[in-house]
């Protein structure tokens, strides 16, 4: 398992690389790690902006294809969603938070905070709530299942080989890395 310190360093590195990428086109070439893992945050690609913001809000490995679906669902149900993302992105660039715990308290605008919480909720629950219906984005990719996946089955997915489980109870402190 990666240590929290290592994860924090990666987050900061990604954040800095992302900010750099947004600042100048030249920096795209220097940020190949981010580009390879999540696509270059181009000024014209709204999903890249969404992923950039998501990586600050959700401190885990995020699948861009899932992000693409979440972004698409929000674009359907939220008015002016890309501008809301732009506002959050600008704030991130301005405040350079080291993690979500430092970033959320800087959101004094309730609308911005609501947008941030909706994005977090979508990654964890796999659903984007619309006015008339819910948009299910994913099932096994929902992060709420990964928090307990060291012990609990993701419902409908196999736990193990036949009768391969046991009654060992693990500590709450052994948080999986994902």
């Amino acid at each position: 398992m990666r240590s929290p310190c290592t994860k924090l360093k990666i987050n900061r590195r990604r954040l800095l690389l992302g900010m750099s990428a947004l600042a100048t086109a030249a920096s795209f070439a220097q940020s190949r790690g981010l580009a390879e893992s999540s696509g270059p945050p181009s000024l014209t690609d709204p999903v890249s902006h969404f992923m950039f913001v998501s990586r600050v809000l959700v401190p885990h490995e995020l699948d861009r294809s899932v992000g693409h679906r979440i972004h698409g669902a929000f674009s359907d149900v939220e008015e002016d969603f890309d501008n809301k993302i732009k506002e959050l992105q600008d704030l991130i660039i301005k405040t350079s938070p080291v993690d979500v715990e430092h970033f959320m308290p800087t959101l004094t605008d309730i609308k911005q905070k609501n947008t941030a919480m909706k994005i977090i909720s979508a990654w964890y629950s796999g659903v984007v709530n619309g006015k008339s219906k819910d948009h299910t984005i994913g099932f096994e990719s929902s992060l709420m299942y990964k928090v307990t996946n060291d012990v609990m089955t993701i419902p409908s997915y196999a736990k193990s080989a036949p009768n391969g489980w046991n009654s060992t109870a693990v500590s709450l402190l052994n948080m999986p890395s994902f």
Binding site: I120, M144, V147, T148
Partner: peptide
Amino acid sequence: MARSTLGGLAALEKGLYGKALDQEIR
């Protein structure tokens, strides 16, 4: 039954994020 769906939704309802969210879901 796995209570991760219930735990996940209940923790999100509390407005948590980051490590506090993960710990509460678990």
